[in-house]
Simulated scan of single mutants.
Amino acid sequence: MCYSSASIAATILPGRPVAPRASLPRAGSRPAPWIVSPLAVAIHTRRDAASKSVGLLRRNEPFTVQVSTGGWRRVTTAAGLTGWVEAGQIRRDDRQRP
């Protein structure tokens, strides 16, 4: 008989069932880096195109995406600038998959 981690946790721990943990990515299967589609995009303080722009994210500038929600992505640039960009303005670069 085969037991999952969730069934073991549910048996041992009374109360709510425990959701199984997501598996870790296999070596060599990391997601591709993000890139800016146009030459530059505005970084906003909120998920709203009318909100204040706190800077620009330029093509070929390294950045990370922390959250994707409601057509917006929260990004942090290599310089430490954090804010929101429209999701359609950035994408994964499958050509540079690690």
Rank of each mutant, 00 (worst) to 15 (best):
R97E: 08
I8C: 13
G80P: 09
G55F: 09
W34F: 03
S37E: 00
D48I: 06
L81I: 10
P38V: 03
G80V: 09
R30P: 05
E61Q: 13
R74S: 04
L57N: 01
G71F: 01
R73G: 03
R91L: 11
A42S: 10
A10G: 02
G83M: 00
A9T: 12
Q89M: 05
C2R: 14
A40V: 00
H44R: 11
R95F: 01
V65H: 07
G55A: 09
D48M: 05
S4Y: 09
S23W: 11
D94H: 09
T77W: 07
I90P: 00
A78Y: 06
R58M: 06
M1P: 00
Y3H: 11
I90N: 00
A78H: 06
L56A: 00
S68G: 15
G15S: 06
S5P: 05
Q96R: 10
P17S: 08
G88T: 06
R95M: 01
A78E: 11
K52G: 02
A27G: 09
V85Y: 05
L39I: 03
P17K: 15
L81W: 06
R46M: 09
R74V: 02
A42I: 06
Q66D: 15
W34L: 05
V41T: 14
A22I: 08
L57M: 07
V75N: 10
R26F: 02
A6S: 13
R74H: 01
V54N: 04
S53R: 14
G88N: 01
R30K: 13
A79W: 11
A50H: 04
R74L: 11
T82W: 11
G83C: 02
I43V: 10
G28T: 13
P31A: 10
S37D: 05
N60P: 08
S51N: 11
A32N: 10
F63M: 15
A19I: 12
L39S: 04
R46E: 07
L81Y: 08
A50P: 02
V65L: 03
G28W: 15
S37N: 08
L24W: 13
P31Q: 09
P17I: 01
L56I: 03
P62F: 08
P20G: 03
T77H: 04
P14I: 12
Y3W: 15
R21C: 14
D93S: 05
R47T: 11
A40C: 04
A6M: 01
R21W: 08
I35R: 15
R74C: 10
I90R: 02
G15E: 02
V41I: 05
I35N: 09
L56H: 05
V18F: 12
V85E: 07
G80K: 12
A27S: 15
L13A: 04
W84F: 13
A32P: 00
Q96H: 08
V36P: 01
V67D: 14
I90L: 02
P31F: 07
A19T: 13
S51A: 14
P17Q: 10
I12K: 12
G28S: 09
I35V: 06
V75D: 03
N60S: 10
R59V: 04
G80S: 02
A22N: 11
R26A: 15
W84E: 04
L56E: 00
G70E: 01
S51H: 14
T69C: 02
V36N: 10
W34I: 00
A19R: 15
V65G: 08
I12W: 11
G28M: 13
S68R: 08
